[in-house]
Design a binder for these strands. Structure first.
Lengths: 151, 151
DNA sequence: TATTGTTATACTCTATAACTATA
DNA sequence: TATAGTTATAGAGTATAACAATA
């Protein structure tokens, strides 16, 4: 193979690999794949899990508050809650003080489902942390949290 | 407001925020938004930039090799190269030794475009690195690169 | 048989605009 | 008028299957 013409399969990506943007995208895909693997037996997506977890910690949160907190658009919340409600894990409750608003609550089945999901998710989290080492994991979380505030 | 019912807008997401999965997703969105902002004047997406950069470093790489290296599906590569070719920044050249294969080359206009993009991208990279600090940036890149290898 | 580029399909996500019902 | 939930739509990304040309 010639050194100037690229005839081989393996490409030189050393420039892209030296950038934060490429590295974070690649790592995010790997982590996301691991989460999917942890949840797919229970047929739950990462977004559904984040809603269940947020509702568990904030019972009665409105759809708008959940959307704003989780960083998804309000319209996107509708089918997500629809599927969770169809599955019987959350309930929409019309707020008597503001009948435009639906407050979201976990059902007892939802609590049981979340317990199962938490077991899988904690396994995933331990897998990630032991893969990179606990000290790196703590650094990573701290730097990522700062980076998320980039304007 | 009651302490048990969630009537306010700001939710407690302390659990999700303590996880690598949530933090990396949030940070990736912030970085991606910054890259988009850097490129949108030139009407180029992050994927288009990654292809141009990979072709610059690997002239004559095939579509299949680019797809494999950049971690996108082969069919996804077709419209990406289509738009870059329609724009006149890359050329598809049928390989005379294997006429199934199209080797991708930057045009001279493509080289000029990539030069402009590199200026913007380097500004973005400096912005990210100075936002978190150069020492954190080096740690971050190293940990993310390791994490991307998670099975 | 296997592979490259391609087409087609379906599903998800993202982003907007606009509607309804309420306030 | 403004907001919550919803509907609708369009664009982008992801994942597969399959086909034609070629190996």
């Amino acid at each position: 193979m010639s050194p100037t013409r690229q005839l081989q399969n393996k490409l030189d990506l050393s420039y892209l690999e030296s950038t934060i943007g490429y590295a974070i995208k690649r790592a995010q895909i790997a982590v996301s794949r691991d989460i999917h693997g942890a949840f797919d037996e229970l047929q739950v997506t990462a977004v559904q899990f984040s809603v269940l977890s947020a509702v568990a910690d904030n019972p009665g949160a409105s759809q708008a508050a959940l959307a704003a907190a989780l960083g998804v658009e309000r319209p996107r919340m509708v089918p997500v809650i629809d599927s969770l409600e169809a599955r019987g894990v959350v309930r929409r409750v019309v707020d008597p003080d503001d009948r435009r608003s639906r407050r979201i609550h976990l059902t007892s089945e939802g609590k049981a489902t979340l317990d199962q999901l938490m077991i899988r998710f904690e396994e995933h989290e331990r897998r990630v942390r032991s893969f990179i080492g606990e000290s790196s994991a703590r650094s990573l979380l701290s730097i990522l949290t700062a980076l998320a505030e980039l304007d």
